[in-house]
Amino acid sequence: MTSAILVSILMTLVAASTPILLAALGELVVEKAGVLNLGVEGVMLTGAVAGFAVAYSTGSTGAGLVAALVAGVATAMVFAVLTLSLTANQVATGLALTIFGIGASSLIGAGFVGRTITRLGPAFPEALSGHPLLRAVLGHDIVVYLSLALVLAVSFFLNRTRPGLILRAVGENDASAHAIGYRVIAIRYAAITFGGALAGLAGAYFSLALTPMWADSLTAGRGWIALALVVFAAWRPARLLLGAYLFGAVMTAELQFKAAGVTVLPPEALAMAPYLATIAVLTMMSLGPKSGRANAPACLGKPFSAS
């Protein structure tokens, strides 16, 4: 295999990993604040359709990315109002949000089926990435670099800053955080806003970069992989990065093996791999020294109302 092919495979791998990394990173912050949002898939879809609609109408993929952020936040706000202000059940509301997102995106996108836009291009001028090895480093689009920067930023924020500590406190013990004067609900609103923005961006990565078109259920279940990934990473940003690229590698390897005529496992088995890996990690975590829920935020999924 020449280096050009290896680089090409690497580019496919990075592109496949980026949206699940973004969506999972947003969900990680949400869960660290003690909220379980199962509606990631739905938020991704509204982001995907809004991004495409705006990019198609204005001719600017940049405007599309911004629109996806806004649409993601707007959809996540529905979830936030229901679960935080009205203390609805988070699991049921999250599932409902996915169903809502599938339907709403299909309705909004009906007029955009069959249209195309210019794909989101590389972030740097192509002259810089003439050599295959340079292309592997400099040939990606802006969202890829943004996702990597965000992993660093989130990791630093959660572990090295005071607001990060407060956010974690809210997720670990909402009553105590409330008692010493932190505004639990406001902090959770902020976390859900961040999660919604990233899920919206992840969705737009499908409709603007991976497959520049709109079609119903474009993300085809990647939101669920992102949710599994957060558990797989044991709520740690660095492990999330590793996990996302591992999941991306598994998805890409499956196809490369088939194309090369190597049958390692049946394709159905490889399609199960991300979920099997998550179950395996969960099992290992509960068998480990800190048994039980290990690193999961203690208040994850519990409704909070100040009394």
Binding site: I5, A220, L255, Q256, A259, E268
Partner: peptide, 27 residues
């Protein structure tokens, strides 16, 4: 003729990645 089984009728991102894998392998 190299065949990739996508195990789905519809998954645009996977269909695109399958096409890229086939192109990488010389198709």
């Amino acid at each position: 003729t190299k065949v990739i089984w996508a195990s789905t009728w519809y998954d645009p991102a996977k269909e695109a990645d399958a096409a890229k894998a086939l192109i990488d392998q010389g198709c």
